[in-house]
């Protein structure tokens, strides 16, 4: 039997995550790897919103912030385990996305961009200013969920960075699986249809506002869980995760790799997450390089790196 493109993508992703550690010279690489997965998760959600449904958000870091702070606050105030807190955070993000999404998603193009940007800015301002709750710009610590200790008592002793590498990796594969399922499903088809032509989607019965909202809520779940994962493995969180620059980074990762494909967007996350690590030697030039990469890829590879490259390769094969 021929493997479907979905299965191939998932297998490739899982194999890459599982085998990469064989080539890691130090535990530092586990750390970079799990950062890639954390960003990859948020970006996979944006693939649903931007790649499938064609809607822009410049404020998704707001949901990352909600997810992150849920893991810091819910254990203190509600006595929840941090993992349960992540679920509560995702539910909260989804709920907020549902409320905010209704009016915001009526807007189009640049108007949607500025409205979502405003939403993200508001979240990060609340996180930075409500210092008595959130610790303000200094940030706050996040309790350990005790999962590693649990594994250790079960006989599997992983280093801290290796554990979070594996954990984030598994969450990412699950996230990618869900997003790929969605692509070929009736919902995914409706989203891609309204991306192609809203008026035609309406005439075949697609409730355009409702489906945009679904994509927005789904992407908020992803962003929120990404924030929770980041908080849990860093054990510390600052309002920067919710900031404008983080929103921009997420959108750039999505579009850089190829918003239409989950694997492409995860590649984008990989490139943009590793770039600063590689460039630490030339820290002065980090911004210059980042800016150049963003511009060059978008000018010369409009569909993103992966789709453009694969088209080039296929074109040569003919």
């Amino acid at each position: 039997m021929r493997l479907s493109s979905k299965t191939t993508t998932l297998l490739a992703l899982a194999a890459l995550i599982a085998l990469a550690p064989l080539f890691f010279p130090s535990s530092y690489y586990f750390r970079v790897g799990s950062l890639i997965f954390v960003n990859g998760l948020a970006v996979t959600g944006l693939v649903v919103l931007t790649g499938y449904a064609g809607q822009i958000s410049l404020g998704h870091a707001g949901f990352v912030g909600i997810g992150a702070y849920a893991c810091a606050l819910a254990p203190v105030h509600l006595g929840l385990n941090p993992i349960a807190a992540a679920v509560v955070g995702a539910a909260l993000s989804g709920g907020i996305a549902w409320l905010v999404g209704r009016p915001i998603l009526r807007l189009k193009g640049y108007y949607l961009a500025v409205a979502s940007l405003g939403f993200g800015a508001l979240v990060s301002m609340v996180l930075a200013n409500e210092a008595q709750v959130t610790g303000g710009p200094d940030g706050m610590t996040v309790p350990d969920p005790g999962l590693r200790a649990l594994l250790k008592s079960a006989g599997l002793d992983l280093s801290n960075s290796a554990f979070w590498y594996a954990f984030s990796g598994i969450v990412l594969v699950i996230g990618a699986w869900l997003a790929l399922n969605l692509y070929h499903s009736p919902t995914g088809r409706a989203l891609r249809a309204l991306h192609g032509s809203e008026v035609a989607a309406r005439t075949v019965g697609v409730d355009v506002a409702g489906f945009k909202l679904r994509a927005f809520v789904i992407s908020a779940f992803y962003a929120s869980l990404s924030g929770s994962l980041l908080a849990l493995q860093n054990k510390f969180i600052t309002p920067d995760v919710a900031g404008y620059m983080h929103s921009i980074e997420l959108v750039t990762m999505t579009v850089l790799g190829g918003a239409g494909s989950v694997l492409g967007a995860i590649c984008g996350a990989m490139i943009l997450t590793t770039l600063p690590q590689v460039l630490t030697v030339f820290q002065e030039y980090e911004q210059v390089m980042l800016g150049l990469v963003m511009m060059l890829v978008m000018i010369f590879m409009r569909d993103g790196l992966l789709p453009s490259l694969s088209r080039k390769i296929r074109g040569r094969g003919k």
Binding site: T252, A259, L292, M294
Partner: peptide
């Protein structure tokens, strides 16, 4: 639109750098 947003944001980061 998304690509154009990223190009000009890229330009702003480049100029800043």
């Amino acid at each position: 639109v998304v690509s154009l947003i990223i190009i000009t944001i890229g330009a702003s980061i480049l100029i800043r750098g």
